[in-house]
């Protein structure tokens, strides 16, 4: 497991001092994939550099399996770096080395014998499905294959923690999915903790168990992905599954935004709701998907009934969270009239 404790990183001195990371806490268990998202300039790459021990934090610590790695001297730090495997954005391969020679790099630095290195490299390339590409040069490989070589290289020294720094950025959707599946498989087989830094929300949904949003050097929101999605007022949840445009509502109907909650929702809930309220329910827009066995998503519906309180109750019984669109204005108006 890896823990980041009150991590703070400043660059420059005096008036030019810039605080890039401002007291960051993160904790990733073994077999957990935790994503960190955020806009560019939020401090993601600085976080990656601190976690991979390439940059020394100004204060705070990086702790892997109970050992505080951020306080070591330069020589010990070099050894400690080997406990964290880093996967870089796809430009991280050495162009004059074959796939096998790229994977062998960390073993070469460590001083492993040629025979042992050859055996391990074969094993690793096989593991990422590139056994037949060992003697290919990076320019002969596709983006996805290059990234597989990068993953094999990150695993060469049997790290317990993998840092993925924008590893799927710049890959096409199919290659991204393949890389995500490979990382999940490796996590299960090797009990890895994976810190997955990205700006791609879609990829977070595919891969992460938990997610944190970094903004201006702080974690502004974090939680389990499924829990965040089930909370309609979570801005991170909304960012992960954005609401897109929907059809206009029929006249006389009220529009509701519903969100799938943590409890299971019957698949025929639209029909059940219509039957329960004895009225028509129109589906205006929806985005629903199953992630790790749980159905998540949201829908926009129009209901032709004046009994707004009943709609909310019925929906809640079905396991859905409901908000009436534009209801705040109307509610204000109603209360004015009542007074």
């Amino acid at each position: 497991m890896i823990r980041v404790d009150q991590l703070r990183k400043e660059f420059g001195h005096g008036a030019q001092r810039a605080v890039v990371l401002d007291g960051l806490d993160l904790s990733i268990e073994a077999r957990e994939i935790s994503a960190v998202v955020g806009p560019s300039g939020a401090g993601k790459s600085t976080l990656a550099q601190c976690v991979s021990l390439l940059e020394r934090p100004t204060s705070g610590s990086v702790i892997v399996n109970g050992d505080v790695l951020s306080e070591l001297g330069e020589r010990e730090l070099r050894v400690a770096r080997r406990r964290i495997g880093t996967i870089f954005q796809s430009d991280g391969l050495f162009s004059r080395r074959t796939a096998a020679a790229n994977v062998a790099l960390p073993l070469e630095y460590l001083g492993v014998t040629a025979a042992e290195s050859r055996r391990r490299v074969g094993e690793l390339l096989d593991r990422v499905g590139l056994a037949d590409k060992a003697v290919h040069y990076p320019h002969q490989l596709s983006g996805g294959q290059r990234q597989r070589v990068g993953i094999a290289r990150a695993l060469a020294l049997r790290p317990s923690v993998i840092l993925s720094d924008e590893a799927t950025s710049g890959l096409d959707p199919d290659a991204t999915t393949a890389i995500v599946e490979l990382l999940k498989e490796l996590r299960d087989d090797l009990d890895l903790s994976i810190l997955f830094i990205t700006h791609e929300m879609d990829t977070v949904l595919q891969i992460a168990d938990s997610v944190s949003r970094l903004d201006h050097g702080r974690i502004v929101e974090s939680g389990r992905v499924l829990e965040l999605l089930a909370q309609p007022n979570s801005s991170l949840g909304r960012a992960l599954q954005p609401r897109r445009g929907h059809e206009p509502a029929p006249t006389g109907a009220t529009v509701w935004e519903v969100t799938y909650g943590a409890d299971p929702v019957p698949a025929d809930w639209v029909g059940l709701l219509a039957a329960g309220l004895d009225t028509t329910v129109s589906l205006l827009g929806a985005s629903i998907e199953t992630l790790r066995g749980a159905t998540t998503g949201h829908a926009t519906i129009a209901v032709s009934t004046p009994r707004h309180d009943l709609v909310e109750v019925e929906l809640r019984l079905l396991g859905l969270d409901a908000t009436r669109v534009g209801s705040e204005d109307l509610l204000a108006l109603e209360s004015e009239v009542a007074r």
């Binding site: 770096r81 050495f94 960390p106 070469e108 630095y109 460590l110």
Partner: peptide, 20 residues
């Protein structure tokens, strides 16, 4: 980026200059 790759793979400065 290659220097970063080498550093994070545990290379010494001489190894970095030579390989990366």
């Amino acid at each position: 980026a290659l220097t970063r790759v080498a550093r994070s793979s545990g290379a010494s400065p001489i190894q970095i200059i030579r390989t990366a």
